[in-house]
Design a protein around this nucleic acid. Structure first.
Lengths: 149, 149
DNA sequence: ATTAAATGATTCAATATTAAACTATCATTG
DNA sequence: CAATGATAGTTTAATATTGAATCATTTAAT
């Protein structure tokens, strides 16, 4: 979003914050790409495996919510992960509309090896900020990030 | 990224900030989707038109930098915008490697009508924060967002 | 109970996205 | 000047992404 826009201060501030937010995410994200691509995983594939790894098996709707993507997208990414043998779907027998996505043993090995490397990269990038700065923006970001559609 | 991860405080903080940042961007972005799709433009198409609108005609390399996407991607999105008659490429005669992307009259009308609506949505969403909060996070986000790959 | 509404998942078409290979053009420099 | 290297853009193959339509299943309502 252009910095040349002439609007009210309120508008200019809002736009600037949004641009800065986008660039922050992009900045961290681009630091992860080499590690992910070396591991042969996309960002979304990582996101799904990581969610299951830390929160346990869950259905695709929940996954969509976790990684902020559409339902149709999850179907595809889970398909691709299943093809690679990292996850498997298990149909819920109580309510057959659901299928729960689990990590396979291979998948668990994969993500447990990869996750620490990703954390390291994020910590590294976040090192641009002091702990105080991180503490300062945390609650404010939380306010803005909540109230999701 | 899971909140259940047990690591050092430094690691947990870094991860949490990253998740929050992502959710902020997603939150604002999802507020724009209805307006954009009603206008028949994608986020990237809007980004390109908006950049040219406020900063003037520029080459695809610069556009890639502005909207944080790859060169190949810009080629495609500009193609699609050109098909719709919103932009045109003009080959630079001094250095024929470059082609400069311009808005057509139609494109200019389009973006000038759309931009204020998008600003309104962003301001609306950013209203979750006080002006003071926005001022507080601005410089910190700037620090983190710089030093791009 | 039968229909109607809701919900999770899948499919489809259109567009986006990237990395890598490739083309064209320009700059360097030997 | 010719070879080398750098740079902008394009193409290609693989995956992602969305919204809308559809299917399957369950729940709610009359």
């Amino acid at each position: 979003m252009g910095t040349k826009y002439k609007g009210s201060p309120k508008e200019v501030n809002a736009l600037n914050i949004f641009i800065k937010l986008s660039r922050c995410v992009e900045s961290v994200m681009s630091g992860l790409s080499p590690t992910l691509s070396r591991a042969g995983l996309t960002v979304s594939q990582f996101g799904i495996m990581e969610s299951i790894y830390h929160l346990g098996p869950m259905c695709q709707k929940e996954l969509a919510c976790k990684i902020l993507k559409s339902g149709g997208n999850i179907t595809l990414v889970v398909d691709n992960l299943a093809k690679q043998g990292y996850v498997k779907r298990i149909r819920n027998e109580q309510d057959r509309r659901y299928s729960t996505v689990h990590l396979t043993a291979t998948g668990r090995r994969k993500i447990s090896a990869l996750f620490p490397k990703i954390v390291k990269k994020i910590v590294e990038r976040m090192g641009a900020l002091t702990q105080e700065e991180q503490k300062a923006i945390g609650p404010i970001l939380k306010k803005l990030g909540e109230g999701h559609k």
